[in-house]
Write a protein that binds this DNA or RNA. Structure first.
Lengths: 218, 218
DNA sequence: ATATTAATTTAGACAAGACTAAAAATATAT
DNA sequence: ATATATTTTTAGTCTTGTCTAAATTAATAT
């Protein structure tokens, strides 16, 4: 049996490992888990013991194939629940994350298969992140971040990098959501702020916003 | 904050208290929770400490109003999830209980309000048990058990007392479900077995079956 | 190359929820 | 009414996941 805490550590290792170097260091993991480095060390040991993680003292941690499988399955559940909440229960995309953190730990293969079918086998969650299929395959869509976009080019909004409710509410306020058409008008060389036309409306966004918005060239 | 374990103890106290004397004894609680009496004593102490339970040494435990409120809310969530699983995700009534035991602990008021609305504010779960409303009100339906039924009388099936999957599968096999029309033909004085016509088909049921099937006189 | 700083691990302790074994209180039987 | 049996509580221990403080290893700077 795998505990809830173990699942959360595995998920954190997966996410950190994804966006940076392969080997996840203890402090980064402790940060993500809101614990101290010593607690992270203990858990890493335990996960290595159970063959969910590869661990060499002072060298950081990676997931084994078994660990990755668990991580991907949790992510699949998380994202399917997010779709359910938004599509069926009138949640907005900034409300679903915390709740999905609870729901992702529900254990039932049939539940997740049926939910998937009930939702029509969605491929992306409400933030634009891909939903792994039953076999753990993740369909990768080529995407860039707004801060790397070119002037005078049209894009469509694919998703977000930062899914904090603050950021999502900022986007809501400016009427930007999945699929929104965004045209880059001008990039200010001084501070890298960007003038865009989003769904027809003119808007200037800072670099910190631009870094967290994923786009697809049209 | 209330822990998962505390919630489960509160629920168990509520259910045991419901079907028998008010004061729940330590052994009964330990049994229901699959723990030992000493563990139950510890938890009862803790619940009393937090004002969820009334406790006098050696005298058993009851819930306070706050405790009852929590219990009823968990039951509301449990039964709404059961409806969801059966109505929307193709589960059968014998498959849903364990899964609902997990789902009932998800914490989100909005989730449960929206789920309730999504399901059309159902009043009963798939086993015929009433679903408490948002204010904790439980609509009580007068029901008898098949073993107390009268000969030559027609009834409709309201629910079950024993919701083990063995019993539910027995009912499935004999095509008895919620709302089934059941006519009592003859009660055998020797062993109290009962000849019934269920959905048009003749069937003889033992007393232990008859004790666990709830009916409403038609 | 060595000193200093940063990251990681170890050691020991704590709270929650469980257990066993023993003691205390209550219930039952003659 | 007293002896016996049952139930409940207490005392002490264990595991999980956490912490602090100290020790160790790795990284960085001069």
């Amino acid at each position: 049996m795998i505990t809830l805490t173990e699942e959360n550590y595995i998920k954190a290792i997966y996410h950190i490992g994804k966006q940076g170097r392969e080997n996840v260091n203890t402090n980064a993991l402790a940060d993500a888990m809101n614990t101290k480095a010593s607690s992270a060390t203990d858990m890493i040991r335990k996960l290595a013991e159970k063959d969910y993680a590869n661990y060499k003292k002072y060298k950081g941690v990676t997931l084994t194939e078994a660990g990755k499988k668990i991580a991907i399955n949790i992510i699949r559940k998380h994202r399917l629940w997010e779709v359910f909440l938004v599509e069926k229960l009138n949640f907005t995309w900034d409300e679903v994350h915390e709740l999905a953190e609870q729901l992702e730990h529900i254990k039932s293969q049939k539940l997740i298969d049926e939910l998937d079918a009930f939702l029509g086998h969605p491929t992306h969650d409400p933030h634009g992140d891909p939903i792994p299929d039953k076999n753990g395959e993740i369909t990768f869509v080529e995407k860039i971040v707004l801060s790397q976009a070119q002037e005078h080019q049209k894009y469509s909004c694919l998703g977000v990098n930062d899914s904090s409710s603050e950021f999502l509410q900022y986007l809501n306020k400016n009427n930007i959501s999945l699929g929104s058409i965004i045209e880059v008008l001008h990039i200010e060389p001084f501070d890298k702020s960007i003038n865009i036309k989003a769904n027809g409306k003119l808007l200037t966004v800072s670099q910190s916003v631009a870094k967290n918005l994923y786009l697809k060239k049209l």
